[in-house]
Design a protein around this nucleic acid. Structure first.
Lengths: 222, 222
DNA sequence: GTCTATAATCAGATAGAC
DNA sequence: GTCTATCTGATTATAGAC
């Protein structure tokens, strides 16, 4: 039905479309992490991408869908990172199996948190508004987003339970509380405040937040 | 110049005015903690107080000033709490002076954090948007707010340094990082998430967050 | 599909009677 | 000071030409 030429042509056009949508979500991702959903305007997005606002609406039917696409992309990026981390064997080939397992579960949780903080410092972590927002409903109704969220939660949840068995994470804390605490690092205002103060490098900020997150403020653990 | 009757009348009217403004700030405080500054509309405030929107603008010249008044009130409440805490001697009259001092500095920090969390759970903690907002500029320009913030920071800062000297707070953390970490508890999304899950009482939530804040996620400290 | 121009809506702020 | 009614500006969303 379609000649090779047409197929190539179509594929090429589709590639251009995908590339444009990628450029859009990248801009949305950046603006979303910089200003948040409410403060971000569609005009800004259009201006940053370099196309007319009406063209945006040919790709995404609403501001919510626009933001949702960026969030889905970020979520899938996180999922990919965690899945890669899950498959990889711990770098330390200790003899004691239990100890090794304990280290790897805790270390995977720490690696995930560190990754999140670095993304946030790089301005690539779109933060969803914790308060009631029209965006929440859209995200909850988005299969790709919820699928990613569930997969991410499952992976982290498994490591949390394992780390608690290993005696590496406080077993008195419900796993769900640990999970939320780790998720919360993605929108931790401490990171922004410390970055604004310009007294510390990004690496120092990451390490300080990692310390307060896992070892707490108390002196004993450090 | 003014007859006693007039004086009484004027005072009475002034009292009514103050009472109304108090009612306004109380409503704003509640709405601010429930939805945040951006999501809160002036219409809502007027409706909740039971007066017309135009009347609100006779009291406060803008939405920012409206929110600012509520934030100032909350900040002064916090200041009063901390100052009372500062004056009071530790409940434990141990013999070892250093140990007592260490306990009280740490305990004061913990009492402050616990107080903040309880206020937040009660829906009385107006959260300022961490992102750039028009409210920030207004707050920074507000003497009462900045005075309160500075006093609060000074009190907490003193306790932090003391607790670090006592070996109760990790001395490797810059005091400013500890301060921000404590401030961040006032807008910790973990509290809301756990409350929404309805799996735990308010008291349990407070204790869990206290644990993760001071002892961290790791198992050793608990 | 992209553009310019415009509609529709909503929220902050104000005018003017009382 | 409080009210009703209105203005203003910003923002989401769309119509229609190309």
């Amino acid at each position: 039905m379609t000649s090779p030429t047409e197929t190539v042509k179509k594929s090429f056009k589709a590639q251009m479309l995908d590339a444009r949508e990628l450029a859009i979500t990248a801009s949305v991702n950046r603006l979303l992490s910089e200003k948040g959903f409410d403060a971000m305007t569609v005009d800004e997005v259009a201006a940053e991408v370099g196309i007319a606002k009406a063209s945006l609406y040919k790709h995404f039917s609403s501001k919510e869908q626009l933001a949702c696409a960026a969030m889905v992309q970020a979520m899938q990026k996180a999922q990919a990172f965690l899945e890669a981390l899950d498959k990889q064997v711990g770098p330390d080939t200790a003899i004691d199996q239990d100890l090794t397992a304990g280290n790897t579960a805790l270390h995977k949780l720490m690696a995930s948190t560190r990754w999140t903080l670095q993304l946030k410092l790089a301005g690539e972590m779109p933060t969803l508004p914790s308060q009631n927002s029209s965006l929440r409903a859209t995200l909850m109704a988005s299969r790709p987003y919820m699928d990613g969220l569930m997969k991410v939660s499952d992976l982290l949840g498994g490591w949390i339970v394992q780390a608690q068995k290993d005696g590496a994470i406080n077993p008195a804390l419900p796993p769900i509380a640990v999970l939320y605490t780790l998720f919360a690092r993605a929108c931790d205002p401490v990171v922004e405040f410390l970055k604004m103060s310009e007294l510390h490098t990004d690496e120092e900020i990451v390490e300080m937040v990692m310390t307060t997150c896992f070892a707490g403020l108390n002196a004993r653990n450090n």
